[in-house]
Design a protein around this nucleic acid. Structure first.
Lengths: 122, 122
DNA sequence: TTAGAGTATGAGCATATGTTCATATTGGCG
DNA sequence: CGCCAATATGAACATATGCTCATACTCTAA
């Protein structure tokens, strides 16, 4: 065990290789923000609904049982991350998912959750 | 605009349809925990490294530049969610990703982040 | 232009979250 | 057994997060 940056290291070559493979910090940060956005049940329900139905703020608020302000705040975050987009029709803004990645992410995570708990594969 | 559960509703039929399509609460909760776990940069770096290399706690601590205790705490969370698993070899616990879903999620999110910001598709 | 519906935003507050420090546990070895 | 390395765990603290309330903005219609 050697010392690297003040930490014990058992497998120096693995640590070095991990350093080479590591994502750029800004990418880790951005990807983390995507997941963080999906990691809140309110936003997750929003996105799940928007995967099938184009909806406006007050519809979403009614669906989730939260205030329109709360929905609007969350949609802003999701817009910033390009997870949703909207179109305006008069006074009403209709939101929908921005692209297929979002539903894909939800599908994969759901698959993981529904997978049997037993182990056995690589 | 009608009133449903105390909220304004513009499109009652959409709200009702969203209610039918909604995921069971426990599923939303579990999926949310998966994304929340992926939403922290420390854990994300851990998982990214473990996607390629089987590593032990102190290697990971050295790689990330955080304490072994912090790594251990995070790995416990990831274990609970079945995102990582480990094998013991003597005193050392080697961690790796639990299944393909994890790397798949990271790949999709990374793809989304790298996608050009311009709009234009459905 | 004035009023109102629909939505957006800022501040503030209660809760959740990640790290550190101290301590406990587990397995290998003399 | 007794000791040490490797890891796990609990408590505590600083920060981040999501909601509410109040207010501002935007578009339509009279």
């Amino acid at each position: 065990m050697e010392d690297l940056c003040g930490s014990r290291v058992i497998h120096r070559e693995k640590v070095e290789r991990a350093g080479e493979l590591a994502l750029a910090d800004h990418l880790v940060e951005e990807v983390g923000q995507i997941f963080k956005a999906l990691g809140d049940t309110t936003r997750l329900k929003l996105l799940w609904a928007l995967a099938e139905i184009e909806m406006c703020v007050c519809d979403l608020a009614a669906h989730l049982g939260v205030s329109e302000s709360a929905v609007s705040h969350q949609l802003r975050l999701l817009r910033t991350l390009r997870l949703v987009r909207n179109r305006r029709q008069g006074n009403v803004l209709y939101y929908r998912l921005a692209d297929h990645h979002v539903s894909q992410l939800m599908a994969v995570a759901l698959e993981h959750v529904r997978e049997p708990t037993c182990e056995g594969d690589s």
